[in-house]
Every structure is written in structure tokens, then in C-alpha cells.
Design a protein around this nucleic acid. Structure first.
Lengths: 132, 132
DNA sequence: CTTGACCTTCCAGTCGCTGGAATCCCCATC
DNA sequence: GATGGGGATTCCAGCGACTGGAAGGTCAAG
């Protein structure tokens, strides 16, 4: 199967698939004309990667997760640890974003958004409340 | 004032300040020895940038916001539009992260996390529920 | 034989820094 | 005047995870 078909089947851009090969996440065999030939197993790996990436796992995590998937003697604790750490970092990001969201919502709410120059958003960026 | 003092006063790493100069966000004058000499106005700009970046604005947005800040004939609507677009993108990110969080929480909760290989996390990555 | 859709590789760019090397400057001490 | 240490400077490379584009090879159809 050609790369464009593999792309269609996995939902990953062909460019991304090539990149995954380059960094050693998949290794499709090659036809005589040097075209990549994807097996069902390759597709399975790519789909695995796609789902892991969609859950926000880093490429490094994906590599570890695939290795664990392949290791039939794995301990599920190892998988769980990776997932839990990722979960924690997601929680951190959410907290940060929510804090930004809160501040921005307040500022946007305070700004008239008209043709006049007065702007609480800029005021806050120039000197946050309680600074003087 | 030297760069290290400017860094201390603004809370930005010296490297970041140099980078901001490189991309034209600040333009401290230079002493005879080529050392950057930061004025209070430079510090103010850097602090502005620091706060805007802390709210997640892109460098491009920061540039626009600073320009608006300097433009005493600005319309607050222009500022508000930038902030609102940013707010929308933050909301998008939060939604995405929350969706990841939900799935991961479920998977982590379902995984025994012991020495056995059975792992719902890997099962899900290999073939999500409802796929066959 | 040409057309056009595919495939290949390789290089550059994205974003916002960050680390490091090589060099220079300034001040204090001996 | 030499030396040492802590600044400062520039420039180049790299991060993560792709993405875009150029230059060229391949294949099936007409």
C-alpha cells in the first residue's frame, strides 16, 4: 500500500508518516521503485501513534508506549505511570489556561471596544492593578 | 542600566531580552562599549511584553498591542478584538485539553497499574472502543 | 509520447526561546 | 603589568513536531 492510501486509512498526513519513519517510529518496507509499501501492521502502528498523539502524548511517550505495547511481558504500571504523568501535565496546562482565561475575560469585559482610545486591557498590560 | 539588571527588574531572562531586541520589540541604546543601556521606558516595554506573554499572547499580538499602546489615537475596539480572538483560541485549547483529560482519566482509572501486562490504556490506543 | 498524478529526497521554516562557544570589557588585586 | 572573575557581546545550533516547497523519478492512461 502506498503512502497516500496509508495516509487516508490512518488519517495522518503523508508528510507526518514520512517523518515518523525518519525518526524510527515505523519502518515500512520499500518496493523496487523505492516507494514505501505499508503493511497492515504498519497501519496499525500508525493508527496507534495517531491516537496517542491525539491524546497529547509526546513523540517520546509514543515511542515508550509502542515499546510497551510490543512487550508482552510489560507491567501495566509502566504504561499507567506514563499516562498519569501526562495527565498531570495536562492538568497544569488547563490550570494555566484557565487563569489566562479568567484575566482576559475580565479585561475584555471591562473594555468598551469602541472608537475611543481608553482601554483597560492596555492599562493592565502597562501596569497591573496594585503596582502603584 | 545593564542587561542583567534589566532582567532582574523585569523578570525576563537576559537571553529573552536580547531576543526581543533582535526581533525589534525593544531598542535599547548602546554604550560606547556596545553594552545595552536600558532606560525606564525600555523596562516598561519589557514589563509590558512580559505580562502580555504571560497572558499567552503571541509575539505578533504583543507587537500589535504595543503599537496600539503607543498610538494615542487608537480605538479600544482594536485592542479588544485581539484579546477576544486570543480568548477564543484559549477556549479552544481548554476544550481540547479537557477532552484529553477526560479520556485519560478514564483510561488511567481502568488500568490496574500492577506487574501484569493487561492494560486498558494500550488496548484503547491499539483500537478504540467501537472499532470492531 | 505526453500528461498528470503520484512518489522520492532534501532543505528551510514555523514559534519563542535556550544553550553554548568564542571573544571582549571592566574592575580589583597582586 | 599580569591575572582573575564576572560581566557583556555575537553568532550558531537545537528544541518539538511537523509543514511547505523544490527538484526530480515513476507509473498508468490516452
Amino acid at each position: 500500500m502506498n503512502i497516500s492510501q496509508a495516509a487516508r486509512r490512518t488519517g495522518l498526513p503523508a508528510k507526518t508518516i514520512r517523518y515518523y519513519e525518519e525518526i524510527g517510529l515505523v519502518a515500512p518496507r520499500r518496493d523496487a521503485n523505492a516507494y514505501r509499501a505499508f503493511s497492515e501492521s504498519d497501519l496499525h502502528k500508525l493508527a496507534f501513534l495517531g491516537r496517542a498523539r491525539a491524546l497529547g502524548f509526546s513523540i517520546g511517550d509514543c515511542r515508550s508506549l509502542m515499546a510497551l505495547y510490543d512487550d508482552k511481558n510489560r507491567a501495566s504500571a509502566d504504561v499507567r505511570r506514563i499516562a498519569q504523568q501526562h495527565l498531570a501535565s495536562i492538568e497544569e496546562k488547563i490550570v494555566q489556561l484557565q487563569s489566562m482565561h479568567e484575566t482576559l475575560t475580565r479585561l475584555v469585559g471591562a473594555c468598551a471596544g469602541d472608537t475611543r482610545p481608553d482601554c483597560p486591557i492596555l492599562d493592565d498590560l502597562a501596569a497591573p492593578p496594585g503596582s502603584g
